[in-house]
């Protein structure tokens, strides 16, 4: 599926202060029974966000909210940037996790590290995962939790910088191919299919070298 091109982005931050947040926590298994890509936002972090047991097809508007969960804090109600701790998105490969984050409204994820499969899945869905040093992430957590106003961050994808609302700016590192895809919103299957001749040539060579693979 072609994704939406990513523009330069300004948004407020929700700080999720837990390490090793797994994809079971991001979107619990009962919601994986859907055969669609959309509609997962209301069940994002379901077990942390609500006090009752979540089931597919519920009207989440009437469910009891967990007042201690960060996304239920009015300060972070409109956050589009999720600040997290290390190894965010570990565990199951379910792409429902980035689908849920995007459907909820997040565009940017910041953490000291992301799990590999989650990172790949996020990029495929036009979410921007930004890896920053632990010390910088610590500082952003302080800024995001101090005071009554949420922290606003600007991400400039052309100059590869992140600006924390008057508290300084920092370079960000994004894989050049991912950067290209995010900026242009490419359909990467379409891109791969432009190399169909290379794939056919590989298959022909491999068929001769390793015929059992094609038997």
């Amino acid at each position: 599926m072609p994704m939406q091109p990513f523009e330069n982005f300004r948004g407020t931050v929700a700080p999720l202060d837990r390490a090793n947040v797994d994809t079971d926590a991001i979107i619990p298994k009962q919601f994986l029974k859907s055969i669609k890509r959309t509609g997962f936002g209301p069940n994002l972090f379901d077990e942390w966000r609500y006090l009752d047991r979540g089931e597919p097809g519920q009207d989440c508007a009437n469910r009891p909210l967990n007042p201690d969960f960060v996304l239920n804090d009015p300060r972070y109600a409109h956050a589009t940037i999720l600040l997290a701790r290390h190894n965010f998105g570990c565990g199951s490969s379910r792409e429902h996790a980035p689908w849920a984050l995007a459907d909820y409204g997040f565009k940017v994820l910041i953490a000291p590290s992301f799990a590999d499969i989650f990172h790949q899945n996020a990029i495929k869905n036009g979410l921007l995962p930004i890896v920053l040093d632990e010390a910088v992430v610590d500082r952003l957590f302080e800024l995001a939790t101090d005071g009554d106003e949420p922290l606003t961050i600007d991400v400039d994808l052309h100059n590869l910088t992140l600006d924390a609302d008057g508290h300084g700016s920092i370079e960000i590192d994004i894989d050049p191919f991912h950067h290209h895809c995010l900026i242009h919103g490419l359909d990467d299957i379409g891109l791969t299919l432009t190399h169909a001749d290379d794939i056919a040539a590989y298959e022909a060579r491999r068929r001769a070298e390793a015929p059992w693979l094609f038997a």
């Binding site: 599926m1 792409e95 499969i117 790949q120 990467d188 791969t192 794939i199």
Partner: peptide
């Protein structure tokens, strides 16, 4: 052998390839 997300399942079905570093 490695796990992939649904977009990559589709990518492999369509192209028998994946973009990888």
């Amino acid at each position: 052998a490695f796990g992939v997300g649904t977009s990559e399942v589709e990518h492999v079905l369509a192209t028998q390839c994946l973009l990888q570093k």
